[in-house]
């Protein structure tokens, strides 16, 4: 365990440096003049012109060489400073806190709901087999194939317009969280219920599982003592991956529900060439990735201690 944690701490440092450097190189190599991009985001399309770009270039010293800019970023990072947004002038940490906080809230709520949907359905599907299995397979494919914003619009039509239970979009109250979280949960559960089902089916068919029934344990006892842990390992690992990809990949849901998440914020920062925000966001997400992976590893280790030697 200690070795694993040390290894992860080293990974964390390399990820922070690697992600920051890569983002820097990629942003610098994008076509287009940074000063114009930043000016457009700062002053809006009605007010961006070459004077604004010149002012931005002068203020932010964009003419300085890439190496100097990189050195500044690196020395700031060593002092745990992420800098200020080039567009708003506000500290990057404030923006990240606001965006990441909302993204994490939505991601965790979505994941919890998806677990509540996927685990029972997956187990039921593996246990009862056809025709339920095929029906759930079909349903999962349909939901998965549907763009997530279509699902969101359907929920809005039903829950916000028809029944008027929840607000259409926005944030700030728990009611605002419900529809985006359900939308996210359903699109996640469409895949994860299949993972649960496959893992459960594999376990149910395993020789050790059949043997426990033969030796006289009840179905529930068998499931509790021999099923749960075996099914859980791949499922937990999969949920971990889903959580990570979700934090950065829910742009559509964020813009449909006007949710101020990091996916949306990052996309806008890239349009605006707001390098400190991009670097900060990429960095925090890199760190989150390592931390979540570590957490998943620890949980998997706890579920199945046999894996300790390989970690």
């Amino acid at each position: 365990m200690k070795a694993m944690l040390l290894k992860r701490a080293f990974q964390l440092i390399t990820v922070v440096w690697g992600v920051g450097t890569l983002t820097f190189i990629l942003m610098r190599s994008l076509p287009g003049d940074m000063a114009y991009r930043i000016a457009a985001s700062r002053y809006g399309q009605d007010n961006v012109d070459s004077h604004a770009a010149a002012l931005v270039r002068e203020e932010l010293k964009l003419d300085q060489g890439a190496l100097t800019a990189y050195w500044h970023w690196l020395t700031d990072l060593l002092q745990f400073k992420l800098g200020d947004s080039l567009v708003s002038g506000l500290p990057v940490t404030d923006a990240l806190e606001h965006m990441l906080g909302h993204s994490l809230l939505l991601a965790v709520a979505g994941l919890m709901l998806s677990v509540l949907i996927a685990v029972p359905l997956g187990l039921l599907s593996a246990w009862r087999g056809n025709p339920l299995d095929s029906v759930l397979m079909g349903l999962s494919s349909v939901i998965r194939a549907m763009p997530v914003f279509v699902l969101g619009v359907l929920f809005i039509l039903l829950f916000a317009l028809h029944w008027n239970w929840f607000p259409v979009a926005g944030f700030g109250t728990s009611a605002h969280l419900v529809l985006p979280a359900i939308t996210l949960a359903l699109s996640l559960a469409a895949v994860s219920n299949r993972v649960v089902r496959d893992s459960a089916k594999r376990t149910f068919q395993a020789a050790f599982y059949q043997f426990s029934r033969v030796k006289g344990l009840s179905a529930w006892q068998t499931f509790r003592q021999h099923g749960m842990r075996n099914i859980a390992v791949p499922v937990v690992a999969f949920f971990g991956i889903q959580l990570v990809s979700m934090i950065e990949g829910i742009v559509m849901i964020e813009s449909l529900f006007s949710w101020p998440g990091i996916g949306h914020g990052l996309a806008h920062a890239i349009f605006a060439r707001d390098i400190p925000v991009i670097q900060g966001a990429a960095l925090v997400m890199g760190v989150l990735f390592v931390l979540l992976n570590t957490l998943v590893d620890i949980i998997c280790l706890w579920i199945d201690p046999r894996g300790a030697k390989t970690l």
């Binding site: 317009l161 607000p167 979009a169 813009s255 006007s258």
Partner: peptide, 19 residues
């Protein structure tokens, strides 16, 4: 004031009376 990026969302906000 709430920024509604998508025109569809804004229309639905108007219809639902939320905005």
């Amino acid at each position: 004031y709430l920024t509604g990026h998508r025109a569809e969302s804004r229309v639905l906000q108007a219809r639902s009376g939320q905005v």
